[in-house]
Design a protein around this nucleic acid. Sequence first.
DNA 1: TTGAAAGCGCTAACAA
DNA 2: TTGTTAGCGCTTTCAA
Lengths: 350, 350
Amino acid sequence: MAKGSKRISIQDLAAELGLSVSTISRALNNAVDVSDATKAQVWALAEKLNYQPNSMAASLRSGRSNVLGVIVPHINGAFFPAVVHGIERLASQAGFNVMICQSSEEVDREKKHINALLKAQVDGVLVSMSNTTRDFAHFEQVRRKGIPLVFFDRMPDIPNVCGVVADDYRGAYQLTEHLIAQGCRRIAHLAGPQHLNITFNRHQGYHDALLKHGLPYEKALVIPLANSREKAGAAATEQLLAGPARPDAIFSAYDFAAAGALRVLEEHGIRVPQDMALAGFSNEPFTTMVKPQLTSVDQHGELMGEAAVQLFLQLQKRSDTFTGQRIVLKPKLMIRESSLHGQAATTKSQ
Amino acid sequence: MAKGSKRISIQDLAAELGLSVSTISRALNNAVDVSDATKAQVWALAEKLNYQPNSMAASLRSGRSNVLGVIVPHINGAFFPAVVHGIERLASQAGFNVMICQSSEEVDREKKHINALLKAQVDGVLVSMSNTTRDFAHFEQVRRKGIPLVFFDRMPDIPNVCGVVADDYRGAYQLTEHLIAQGCRRIAHLAGPQHLNITFNRHQGYHDALLKHGLPYEKALVIPLANSREKAGAAATEQLLAGPARPDAIFSAYDFAAAGALRVLEEHGIRVPQDMALAGFSNEPFTTMVKPQLTSVDQHGELMGEAAVQLFLQLQKRSDTFTGQRIVLKPKLMIRESSLHGQAATTKSQ
DNA sequence: TTGAAAGCGCTAACAA
DNA sequence: TTGTTAGCGCTTTCAA
């Protein structure tokens, strides 16, 4: 019941064994220049007294904390959790602890987190920007301190910055081509914010695929989404249906928004995919639970997380924070019922 | 481009201003016994030189880190992210940073995280147990150090432990009563592991509601789930359908498993809810995306997170880690199409 | 209102 | 192979 009961320190061990603190320190860190006998002795006593090293002291002295800071916009949906999982796996394997922070899509919280991580002396920072981030001074601040900085998924537009992204352009391009191949000619796009690389590229891929196949790019068919949620998708779809000429396909920049679209289409008695094909982006688990199952694009979240850690490890080794290296992951089309004409009703993907 | 460019410390400020380090320290911490003029001077210089306090040094000296450690089993689905969100909100409001760790349902990782958090001198630990945790020595270790320990959702069975839980028993009880009120007489249960309080209580609530209403509790209608996922729910449902007497309702301890059940029922041509009612637990967002919309129970994740932080703050103040206080949140039934007989086909909940 | 000084627990030269 | 020693950057008595 005793609160405190006094923490055991390296000195206590030294006193108990009649050794010096430095020997204890070396033994605990399994240094080569300590006799096995001594090590065994030290470890045994540490075990017995339930010695708990104080990593603050170690970090203060050594300048390294063995902590990796991670900032994500949120952990809703399946994508960011998957990335975080990948990060944790590889980081802990490399001996790092991970400190996860959510910006909640607010640039102010992002800045606060950056500050907290710097104060905590993290050895590196992995970030996926919030969608309200427009200036990047707080990121530069990290680099100026010589701390490895790696972005994933959402990258700022600054020179020589490192990061891992999915090839959103290619995913969107291929998805649009797929819709065209299914016979769609008037393909609408529910678009995310155009200042973010990911959603900009999704729109761009859609745009270029249309032109490549001789289809017009119609402004009226591109509806900006208020956010990535169901409701926003529903609202955008209502807007689309209220327009003069109905599209024959909808490509949403987000799965959740696509789910909203699906609901609205159903309410209007519009059959998917017979009357209108539908596709989203991210390959959320629910895409296989709805009816019809939703076509989407997988972004390899876990892989992205692992790649980000690898990039960090490289940066750390090179002691040169400005390589500007980028890793681009190939997206994977997940074609499902919602975009399959003809055989649609019976097909089950995978 | 300069790596390092030497960190500014409190001493640099002192030298520059011709003051002592202690005055600087006090000024920075806005202590009462420093003149406003001095404070202004110090703050201005700190700002100008972009001074970044070293929280390691501060923690080492003061023994407080202002960091709260959080261990969750995973961040899939919507529940734990919601809790984490609640925790972050209140914790950051109270001046704490939050360190989130995932145990990935592995007791070994849980132990490793506990150790890392203790080494990092966190001021408190909030935990939701992994489902492989059977002995609780690593938790006792935290309390023995006098560090506030608060559980949420999944609590171990140890005396005097603090925590926040949803009233799973009551949620399951009411849900079962609802199914009975809908005319169901043979209600099956897809059950989670019985060594965890949450799923034990869900089963118990189901059990007691049956008896209360004069219905028999049939072992054959209770199928243990391998895990909480869709696949496990599908397998359990297959098993149920292969049995001699078909149930007229399924109450799954998890929403995801219920989604699996829904798929299997559809494959068998069994209509929901006409031929079989269906309900899950957690109120995952996808429950309103599937057809029919899934009845479920909401657990107020965000509120739970906030309550956990409040409990921590209390513990910290009382300097007494053994109050054994528990907060129980009332669950909320979310009745939807999948369990509504009669008006089912047309009803939309909320 | 300010300063001097001790020390949190550990690491890493350097010496022996 | 082990010991001595000097801090890492900060907080916090105690004294002025």
